[in-house]
Structures are given as structure tokens and as C-alpha cells.
Amino acid sequence: MAKLSQDEKTILAMFSYMRPSGTPTETMFIERFLTPLGFTRDPFQNLVLTVGDKPRILWSSHVDTVHGKEGIQTLAYDGEMLTLSKGAKLNSSCLGADDTAGIWLMTEMIKANVPGVYVIHHAEENGCVGSRDLARGNPEFFADIDAAIAFDRMGYDSVITHQMGMRTASDRFALSFSMMLDDALGDGSKSKYAADDGGAYTDTNEYSHLVPECTNISVGYHSQHTRNESQHVGHLIALRNLLVKADLSTLVIARDPAQVEYAGSRGFYRGGFFGHGNWDHDDPWDNPKNYTAFPDRRSTGSMEDLVRAYPDVAANILASYGMSRNTLMDEIADMYGDAALEAV
């Protein structure tokens, strides 16, 4: 393999940290890569840094990974794809590209002085804790923000317009963002960016009632949350090359955050989860009057209960995270043995 570039060295260094939320390894990562840039904690434990005078774009990622335990992991890199090493797969549950890739992009944009409010969110993998708390505890923070753009999406080509079936960004915004990206993405890009209404959820979803355009952008990882997770490094670097020179003034702001619009079946995520919208159902969770008594539907019951009640939704969420049927079978076999697959 050819000698690593400085970009590749930094990416590999960042990806070596297994960072469950609140762990010492997460703190080590922050102190090494983020504190020197000027990030500080807000009251909700998010890391925040502003570049420029009254910027109107919020750039988003999250500091935690979904690893089962903390520490340093070894990696395999062939000059294109970054994965866990064979040895690391015995002890590590994932690569952590979700969302180390987004953090690297944001740090590069900061170094290039790209204007924006940069927020690296606390405990996204635990249920968007930091972003939810920020939206509820300090909605004034978003008063001057036109777009909240997350770098936390699998694949190579998504500009997310809907999260959990609810519109969070306009098609006009997605088109303008796609055109801006297409103008500059070169070597390493796998395909053209385009509007994608199949988003699961990430931190920007928590802001969709406060910010007109809330999206999530593909950063080149796949099979996230699994041992087979991979990151296309060339795509990540090519995306950086665009973002540090992009003309952000071409972005179209068109969505009214007061208007609630859904795509297809809303299923379990039909509105109450997000704390706003129009309700016409008998389900008490769909009645905003119950929000004081029932502040967060995710806080009750078990994961097993939810999957049994909403199997189609659970399957769609896994697919949106890049989990194929074969990958899921591999994970089941790793955890419970091949015998567990006899009924499949």
C-alpha cells in the first residue's frame, strides 16, 4: 500500500477510538481532536463552536459511537475501504464510522474557516439525548438558523428529505444541495447526490419544528452498527474537498417548519415522537395534551415489545442503517451460534 497521506493518517487515528457515551475514551477523543479547535460544552453536553459572523447553517454530527465497550481498536485499510482488522472483530462491535466520519468532515471545515454553527451532539446513539435536550431547553438557539445539516448517513448519494416518514427538508433544498455537491465531487465519489425520503433519524430530526431545512448527508459508510461496517475513505476526502469551497449561498430555503408533512405510512413514528404536528388519532401518544404526562414515548416498555408491535418498522429501520439480511444473520450467528438460524 502507498504511503498514507496526512488526511488518511488523521482519519485512521480518529476511527481507532471506541467511544460509548460518557466513557473515558470518549473524553480522550474530545481532548485530542476537538478541544484544541475551540469546542466547548453547552449545558446539554453538546460540543459547540461557531465560525463566522451570525452564520445561518448548523453543521451536525455526534461524538459517541455504538460500541459495546470503550478502548482502542485496530483497523484494516486497503487504500480505499477502511474496516475493522480481523483481530478487532473479536472484541469490537463496529467500526464507528457512524459518526466518526461526520466529525472528521466538520473538523476539516472548521480548519478551512467554513462559516457555521458546529454542533457535535452528545449521546445520539442513546436516543438523540443532546439534541433533544437542546431543542427543548434552549429553542432560542435556533432563531437564526435556516438549515441544520448532519453528516451521519450511510451510502454515497443521499440528501435526506424525510426522517421517520416525516418531511424535514424541502425537495428544493435537496436539489440545491445536490447540485452544489455535484459541481465539485471528483475522485472517490461513487454516484451523484439526490433527494432521499428514506431517512431513519439523527440529531437534526429533533430540530425540524424549529429549523426550516433539516437534512442528513451520506458520508460513505455502510453496515453501520455491525462488525462489517466500512468507510470509503476516498469519498469522505472528496466530500471534504467540496465542502471547504462550496458556495453555500446557492442553498434554497423553502420549507415551513410549522407545516407537518408525511411520506407513506407513519407507523410507530406517526407524530407524537417529535413533539409537534397535527393529531387526529385515538392513540393517547398522538394527543399533544398528554405530553406533560407522557414526555417521551421511548422511555417506557422494552425493545422486544416495540419490535413485536412494529416488526415492519423495525425491519425498515435496520435496512436504513445499512443492515442487510445476510449481515443480520452473521450478527445473530456471532452472538448466539449457527443453531439460532435454524428457524430462518
Rank of each mutant, 00 (worst) to 15 (best):
S5R: 04
T27I: 11
E31M: 03
T35C: 00
L37Y: 09
F44I: 03
L47K: 01
P55W: 07
W59G: 02
K69P: 01
S93A: 07
M106P: 02
K111R: 15
H122P: 01
G130V: 07
S131L: 10
G137T: 06
N138Y: 07
E140S: 12
F141M: 13
A147L: 01
A150M: 04
T161H: 00
G165C: 05
R167G: 00
T168F: 02
A174L: 02
D182V: 00
A184G: 14
K192G: 01
D197V: 07
G199A: 00
Y201W: 12
T204H: 01
Y207E: 02
S208F: 15
V211D: 05
P212V: 08
T215K: 02
I217P: 00
G220L: 02
H222S: 13
R227Y: 05
Q231A: 14
K245E: 13
S249A: 14
I253L: 04
D256H: 03
Q259C: 04
E261H: 10
Y262M: 05
G271S: 11
F274C: 09
W279I: 09
P295Q: 09
D296P: 06
R298W: 12
L306R: 15
R308T: 08
A309R: 15
P311I: 12
S320T: 11
T327H: 00
M329I: 05
I332G: 08
M335W: 09
A339L: 10
A340P: 03
